[in-house]
């Protein structure tokens, strides 16, 4: 019980601290007004090319692994929206190498707030607004055109799935970022993960044979980002080589993966070797 009270007070303290630090981050970002538009355009361009890519392909091929254009577009949109739930709150995670190399983490360790929290509130990720714009915009358009017959229950499932998908990506990136406490640079590893997710998590993943699919579900769990919940909404769970219930509870995958990532991250903070002797 006492343990629970202590945990709760830490959580409350962190929420308060994150409000304070986020406000500071946004205020600092607004100092450079000119960068605002440029960053948002960059965010739209990054994910937008993927949307263009799939759009051009499907205009020629119209079907991919038995999925029609409108459903693939919906799957892509789900992934884009989930991505926004990663980059908007946690986008500053990208800077972890820099924070460690420059010894900023020294200062985080001296403050009465969580390390992870201070890392993710380090600056306001302006580019993420472009991701959010594109993600939520395309989801709003393509959800209506997909073959899902929407009910309030399905809408709720979709919202949970998109937030969960964001947490899956966050958890994976957090796990990889934790290695920065031991390695000089993990940016290329994280770009590799990000790139793989960006390029391929919007496809019907069962197209990569059985073992490919299983490793994308349990080893590099990007199937939880959009594909698994989408099969549930589209009634295509019969395609899966795994049990149907896995798709049904897939929105919870985010919580589990994020918890694993965060626990590992916090454990690795003890391995921190501050730069400079």
């Amino acid at each position: 019980m006492a343990e629970l009270v202590r945990t709760w007070s830490v959580v409350r303290e962190d929420l308060r601290a994150s409000r304070i630090l986020l406000r500071a981050g946004w205020r600092a970002a607004l100092v450079y007004r000119a960068s605002f538009l440029s960053a948002i355009v960059g965010g739209v361009a990054l994910q937008g090319t993927q949307l263009l890519f799939i759009g051009v392909l499907l205009s020629k091929f119209s079907v991919i692994d038995g999925w029609r254009l409108n459903d693939v577009a919906f799957l892509f949109a789900m992934r884009l929206a989930a991505h926004a739930f990663y980059v908007v709150p946690f986008g500053a995670l990208v800077m972890i190498d820099y924070s460690i190399q420059q010894g900023e983490v020294d200062r985080y360790l001296l403050r009465p707030a969580g390390i992870y929290l201070q890392v993710v509130t380090r600056h306001a990720p302006l580019m993420a607004l472009g991701d959010a714009l594109l993600g939520f915009g395309s989801l709003a358009i393509f959800a209506g055109q997909s073959s899902v017959s929407w009910t309030p229950g399905k809408v709720a499932f979709l919202i949970a799935a998109v937030i969960g998908g964001g947490l899956v990506e966050t958890g994976m990136q957090t796990f990889l970022a934790a290695f920065s406490f031991r390695m000089t640079s993990t940016i290329s590893l994280r770009i590799l993960a990000d790139d793989t997710i960006t390029r391929f998590s919007g496809y019907p993943l069962t197209m990569f044979n059985r073992w490919g699919f299983l490793s994308l579900t349990f080893v590099f769990p990007m199937a939880f980002i959009a594909y698994l919940p989408a099969t549930m909404l589209l009634g295509r769970t019969d395609q899966l080589p795994t049990a149907t219930w896995l798709a049904a509870i897939s929105p919870c995958g985010g919580l589990i993966i994020f918890t694993i990532g965060l626990t590992f991250f916090n454990w690795m903070t003890r391995k921190y070797n501050s730069p400079g002797s």
Binding site: A28, D106, G276
Partner: peptide, 27 residues
């Protein structure tokens, strides 16, 4: 006891600042 310790110490590292770089000192 990192958090409790954080409240009982202050630190200035000459080479690095703990201030918010882009904001006025008062902030």
């Amino acid at each position: 006891d990192r958090r409790r310790n954080a409240r009982s110490i202050g630190a200035v590292f000459g080479q690095r600042t703990q201030l918010w770089y882009d904001l006025p000192l008062r902030d």
